[in-house]
Design a protein around this nucleic acid. Structure first.
Length: 627
RNA sequence: GCCUCGAUAGCUCAGCCUGGUAGAGCGGCUGCCUCGUAAGCAGCAGGCCGCGGGAUCAAAGCCCGCUCGAGGCUCCA
């Protein structure tokens, strides 16, 4: 069979130097050392049967390859040692020159090492999978046949997976994305484009990263793996409050909180099957004779519990809940970003085991409402996120009632991803997506109806007739990863700042809720009494007792996003009327009694968890974690 | 994981192209000021110029590799 052999390397650089002419026909050369950076080097031996047609198809393939690796530079390097069937030098040189011309004609930056010389070379080859290739170019008919086979298989797989994008209106009508008018739904438009066309915007450091550091919430930890975050006291407080809040909500909903291990035996029979389908993103660790992996969700722990649990239709839907601190996913290094996408994250995860589809649908709807409520109480309203619903054509035809209900509950257009056939383990899924300042979407809450894993984990319940049956499993995260909620709150605050408002966190999450600023040092002692009085009412209050000016202290409190700032001097001490600077109300100073302030705050943070200030009450006693 | 860019004082950054003594502002410390709603004044301390290698008489600077970060690609069970 005729074939042209090319050994192809994507190299960081190649240095070569012609040493000695080998044949009469050798080209002229200056015999100087040449260096070419970031180049695809093609080592070629021209064989007897090689011809222009083969060169043409080689260049064609090469073009595709270059596009793939986003490079446009090649070096044609005659290398006789590749073959024992070399053509005569005259023909070989002719063909090499033809190849050079063809490459140049198709806009490739082309270099060629001289023909007919012994050359010395050093090459540094890149590490990616496509960097080293040996290619053979066959006669044309052969190539086409091969391609056709590949293409038809790819099309089959793609058809199955292909997504059709629609928008579901609150009244339940389904329109294709092309038909839908996005006017007035800017974020949905962005989201649909993000999902379907993968269009990305350009920005510098994500705003929330700058903020999480400046506000001493969280920071990167270089001493760990990328995507593992350090949390400073203020950040730990915020995160802890969110964790408590979501957990309380889930217990109220009727879920039973459990705690399960973070690492599992790689060889466990129920787990290995599932794992081997997705080996790419796991953290693996070896411990003595065991191979373990870190969980990437709470599924394993809860499934293993429920596998050993006796339950019947009478106890269903049965709900288990766990706040995983942490779940681990070894996301690709280029995807890890700030608090948006981590490798170690805190995930509230609740599984509901349902008897059959009707029960699952009912539960699904209940949780959909619950999620919207939870996000809202956290401080993320329907305006802050967009919902996507994903299902198969069949499911939609048979369950329009549920889809319509969901549309009505959300009361805002929903992006729909429709598949011809089921490809994943679920038949229905929704997710809430936050659109950030870089116009990137990040999923928060999500729920799905899983029809595969009960069988895989041998989870059964006993039905009315005493028979063992596989339940449907709902996978629910009421808020999404807690880190991601913090990210969304910070990005939201930045958005409001861009809109000319004072950025802030919700009052119940603000590390300092009230800051007292004594008018001068001589008032510190008296103001301290006031601080204690306010702290008694479960309000996080602190006092700026540092030796600095009043104006500067106010500026710093504003930069810290403190919701209420109170300057205290002789007037306040005598009258008992406080001048309260209210951040939410455009930083206007309002006069009120201490009891009024306490009432106001307590009303606003009613039903939210409380935790004490995690820092010294006196600012003079606080270290500076950042800046 | 790939491509491109970046890393200099606790923070934000200049210097790098064209190699030859390490710079500013903020912050910190000390002193003065004792202040009425977003930056008072002065002085001092603070640097393995991300890490490792190379070429050079000489490297923050040039070359190679690595780590971490950003954008893009890809991916997101």
């Amino acid at each position: 069979m005729t074939a042209m052999r090319i050994l192809q390397f994507h190299s960081n650089y190649i240095v070569f130097k012609p040493i000695k002419k080998e044949i009469k026909l050798a080209e002229e050369s200056d015999e100087k050392e040449k260096r070419i950076e970031d180049v695809v080097v093609l080592f070629i031996a021209i064989e007897k049967e090689d011809n222009k047609t083969l060169v043409n198809s080689a260049i064609k393939e090469l073009n595709i390859f270059l596009k793939n690796i986003k490079l446009n530079r090649i070096l044609i390097y005659p290398f006789a040692h590749l073959s024992t069937n070399l053509s005569i030098p005259k023909d070989a040189l002719k063909l090499l020159k033809y190849m050079e011309k063809k490459a140049k004609n198709s806009q490739i930056e082309t270099y060629r090492a001289p023909f007919g010389w012994t050359k010395q070379f050093t090459i540094s080859i890149k590490g990616h999978p496509l960097a080293e290739q040996s290619r053979s170019y066959f006669q044309t008919e052969k190539i086409e046949l091969k391609k056709e086979e590949i293409v038809s298989k790819a099309i089959q797989a793609e058809e199955k997976m292909k997504s059709f994008w629609h928008v579901l209106e609150p009244d339940g009508t389904l329109k294709s994305v092309k038909e839908f008018k996005f006017k007035g739904h800017k974020n949905l438009d962005l989201f649909s484009k993000y999902e379907s066309t993968k269009l990305r915007a350009f920005c510098e450091m994500p705003p929330h990263v700058t903020l999480m550091r400046r506000l001493e919430i969280a920071d990167y930890e270089e001493g760990s793996d990328p995507g593992n975050i350090r949390w400073y006291p203020k950040g730990r407080l915020i995160k802890s409050l969110l964790e408590q809040f979501v957990t309380n909500k889930m217990i109220e909903y009727g879920a039973m909180e459990v705690e399960t291990p973070i690492m599992y035996d790689f060889k466990h029979p129920s787990l290995s099957d599932y794992l081997n389908r997705f080996p790419a993103r796991q953290y693996l660790l070896n411990s003595e004779d065991k191979e373990l992996f870190l969980r990437f969700a709470a599924c394993f722990g809860q499934f293993l519990i429920i596998h050993d649990t006796q339950f019947s239709y009478k106890q269903m839907p049965l709900k288990l809940y766990e706040l995983t601190r942490y779940s681990f996913r070894r996301e690709k290094s280029g995807e890890v970003c700030g608090l948006r996408r981590l490798r170690a994250f805190t995930m509230p995860d609740c599984h509901a085991f349902c008897t059959e589809l009707n029960q699952a649908k009912k539960e699904f709807e209940k949780r959909f409402k619950l999620s919207i409520e939870i996000l809202n109480e956290i401080g993320l309203t329907k305006e802050d996120y967009e919902i996507a619903l994903r299902f198969t054509e069949d499911f939609f035809e048979e369950n329009k009632d549920l889809i319509k209900k969901l549309a009505k509950i959300y009361d805002k257009p929903i992006l729909v991803e429709l598949w011809k056939e089921r490809f994943f383990y679920f038949i229905l899924k929704w997710d809430a997506n936050f659109i950030d300042n870089q116009k990137k979407a990040a999923a928060l809450s999500t729920d799905q109806i899983d029809v595969e894993n009960a069988k895989r984990y041998k989870i059964t319940y006993v039905d009315k007739n005493g028979e063992k049956k596989y339940p449907l499993i709902l996978h629910f995260s009421p808020s999404g990863a807690i880190e991601r909620v913090v990210y969304a709150l910070l990005e939201k605050a930045f958005k409001s700042q861009q809109a000319g408002k004072s950025p802030m966190l919700p009052l119940w999450l603000s590390p300092t809720q009230v800051r007292l600023i004594p008018i001068s040092e001589s008032y510190v002692l008296k103001v301290n009494e006031l601080t204690k009085e306010i702290a008694k009412h479960n309000i996080r209050v602190d006092i700026d007792d540092r030796a600095s000016t009043l104006q500067k202290k106010i500026r710093e409190a504003e930069k810290e996003w403190v919701p209420y700032i109170i300057v205290v001097g002789p007037k306040e001490i005598e009258s008992g009327i406080l001048s309260v600077r209210d951040r939410e109300n455009n930083r206007k100073v309002e006069k009120m009694k201490l009891s009024q302030l306490i009432d106001k705050i307590q009303t606003k943070i009613k039903n939210k968890p409380f935790q004490l200030l995690p820092l010294p009450q006196n600012l003079s006693k606080r270290p500076q974690f950042y800046g």
